[in-house]
Structure formats: C-alpha cells, structure tokens
C-alpha cells in the first residue's frame, strides 16, 4: 500500500480550481481506480466520465500531469508521485463539471462527413471479395476508440480554437478510413480542403504520440490524404484538365 496526493480540477462554469486529495493505492492500480476511490470515500459528487475501464471505449480521457491520457490505462507506477499528481479535464472542449467536458462537437463534425458508399456487390449472393492485404491499412484506422485525445492535444483546436474550420486528427483518420476502404466509391477530397481544413495541420505528430491505440495518425492517415489532395487539386496537368472539363 502506497499513498499519493492528487490535485483534481473541480467545479463548473467559471468557477474552477484544484482540490487536493490524499489517498492510498495498491499495486497495479490505474489512475481511474484512484479517482473511484476518492469518489467513494471523500468526494461522492465528483464528476468523471468512464465506461469500460479496459481501454476499449475511450470515455475516461483526461490530462494527467498535463499529458492527455486514458485514466483507465495509466498505471500508478508509470507516473511520478513525489509531488502532487494533477488531473484535469480535456482542455480543447467546453468544460461541464470537474473532469467532464462537452465533446458533442465531435459528433456534429462526424455527421457532416459523407458516409460510406460501397461499389455494387462483386458476387451474385450480394457479397464482396477483398484481400487481407487491401484491408490491413483501413483496419489500422478502424481501431480508433474515439477518445478524442488526439483532438485535445492538437494545437489547431486547443490553442487556436479553429473548431469551425478544422475537423481535427480524429476525423482525418475517419476520412482516411473511408477514402482507403477498398469498396468505397465516394470522393471526399474537395471537402477536406474547403470544409475540413486539412491545410492547417503542420504535421507536428502530437496526435500520433497520444493515441492509446497506437494509430500512426500523421504518417498513415494525414500525410497520404494531403498527398491525394495535392495530386487532385494542385497538380498543374490535372488543373488544366479540370478547366477544360468544366467548360
């Protein structure tokens, strides 16, 4: 049994401050266990969002000592406890109460992205054929648990607040999963430039570093999308071709 001190961001509205709690913890405990312990023993109305406590649902995102992480997958022995451990809500989204933020913006953004549109079935029984090689790439993106930690860390959203012009790393991964889906026939490249603001990303790779599913967001999703956009819209030959076609 060890003991540690935590500074939890508490309050709501304009009224937020750190509150200090000291509690014991056992070997193997994760940060979310400690939060639950504080909730059960010292602060029964402490607001915290969580679900599976197994790293599969992406609900318990927070900033632990300033780093965006899942509380359920951060073991106590991974973080220094000599000085108080700070736990704050994700700062890139409107704050509701204590450790909980309003992430509904993400859900509105997703709805605006054109949905999956498959080609006609390959086989008479209405099924498709795809090789494992062709789906590997998309499967990496589909591991995303929508914890929104990549959104939280992205400076375009966090510091520049460009939520209306820029959809953020999560939705570039989402668009990449659709665009690179072997069956998909939709084209989302134009909206990536006009409405999704892919140009704002200057590939600092902060999103990749915080992804709990280890998705190589920048290298495998964003950069290939940027390349496709360049090929499609900034290639001089294609531009010329488009000019003729549009007349």
């Amino acid at each position: 049994m060890s003991s540690a001190t935590f500074q939890l961001w508490r309050g709501s509205g304009a009224d937020g401050k750190y509150t200090t709690y000291t509690t014991d913890y056992q070997e193997g405990m994760v940060v979310l266990d400690v939060i639950h312990k504080i909730q059960a023993e010292q602060a029964p109305n402490l607001a915290v969002r969580w679900n599976c406590k197994a790293g599969k649902c992406g609900s318990c995102s927070a900033e632990i000592n300033g780093k965006p992480r899942l509380m359920c997958m951060t073991r106590m022995n991974e973080i220094p406890v000599e000085s108080p451990v700070t736990i704050e809500p994700m700062r890139a989204f409107p704050w509701i109460r204590d450790l909980v933020t309003d992430v509904s913006w993400n859900y509105r953004v997703k709805k605006q992205i054109k949905k999956f549109k498959p080609r006609p079935p390959d086989n008479p029984d209405g099924t498709w054929s795809m090789s494992q090689e062709d789906v590997d790439r998309v499967q990496e993106f589909r591991k995303c648990i929508e914890c929104f930690l990549c959104q939280d860390v992205c400076h375009v959203l966090r510091e520049h607040n460009l939520h209306e012009e820029f959809v953020g790393p999560r939705f570039f991964v989402y668009v990449a999963a659709l665009e690179m889906h072997p069956l998909d026939t939709e084209n989302r490249l134009e909206e990536l430039v006009t409405a999704k603001g892919i140009g704002y990303c200057n590939i600092t790779k902060c999103c990749t570093k915080v992804c709990p599913e280890n998705i190589t967001i920048t290298d495998n999703a964003i950069i290939p999308l940027k390349e496709r956009v360049v090929d499609e819209y900034y290639d001089p030959l294609k531009r010329l071709f488009r000019m003729f076609r549009s007349k």
């Binding site: 709501s12 909730q39 029964p44 109305n45 607001a47 969002r49 509701i96 109460r97 909980v100």
Partner: peptide, 9 residues
C-alpha cells in the same frame, strides 16, 4: 449531496 450536474453519486 451536491447538485444535479453530472453527479455520479
């Protein structure tokens, strides 16, 4: 105790 906002208790 507390109020009705995101009150897990």
């Amino acid at each position: 105790d507390g109020n009705r906002e995101y009150n897990t208790g």
